Simulated assay, not measured.
Amino acid sequence: MHIHHLLENNSIANKFIAQLRDINIQTDRMRFRRNIERLGEVLGYELSKHLNYNDTSVTTPLGQANVPLPAEDIVLCSILRAGLPLHNGLLNYFDDAENSFISAYRHHPDNDEKFEILVEYLASPSLDNKTLILADPMLATGRSFVNVMKALESMGTPKNIHLVSVIGAKEGIEYMQSEFPENTHLWIATIDEELNERGYIVPGLGDAGDLCYGTKMQH
Rank of each mutant, 00 (worst) to 15 (best):
N147Y: 03
N92I: 03
M176E: 04
S144P: 09
D192Y: 10
E98D: 15
A104W: 11
M138F: 13
G204T: 01
K159M: 14
L205T: 01
V166D: 06
I102F: 06
E120P: 06
T184R: 02
T190I: 08
G142M: 05
G199Q: 12
H108N: 12
L186I: 03
E116W: 05
L163W: 00
I191P: 00
N183L: 05
Y121W: 11
E153A: 07
S154M: 12
A97P: 09
L152P: 07
V166T: 12
K159V: 06
R198W: 13
Y105C: 11
R106E: 08
A169H: 02
G199E: 14
L152T: 03
P158I: 08
E171N: 06
E193P: 02
E194H: 08
A123P: 00
L186Y: 09
F94L: 00
R106T: 02
A140M: 06
Y93F: 08
G168E: 04
I201Y: 00
G142C: 05
S103C: 09
N129I: 00
A140E: 03
R198P: 00
N92E: 07
S165V: 04
N160Q: 15
I102P: 05
L163K: 05
K170N: 09
H162M: 11
I133P: 03
Y200H: 03
N183F: 01
I191C: 03
A140C: 08
L195Q: 07
P181K: 07
H107G: 01
E120Y: 13
E197L: 11
R143M: 11
V166G: 06
E194K: 15
E113C: 12
K159E: 15
P125Y: 08
V164N: 08
N147T: 05
A135H: 03
G172Y: 03
E197A: 15
A169Y: 02
M176T: 02
M176I: 04
I201E: 00
I167C: 05
F101L: 14
E193T: 13
K114S: 15
Y121M: 10
F145G: 11
F145H: 13
A140R: 02
G199D: 13
G199A: 13
G156Y: 12
H162P: 11
I167R: 00
Y105T: 04
N111R: 14
H162W: 12
S126H: 09
Y93C: 01
L163Y: 08
L195K: 11
D112V: 12
I117M: 11
I133D: 09
D112G: 14
K170T: 14
P137S: 03
H107S: 10
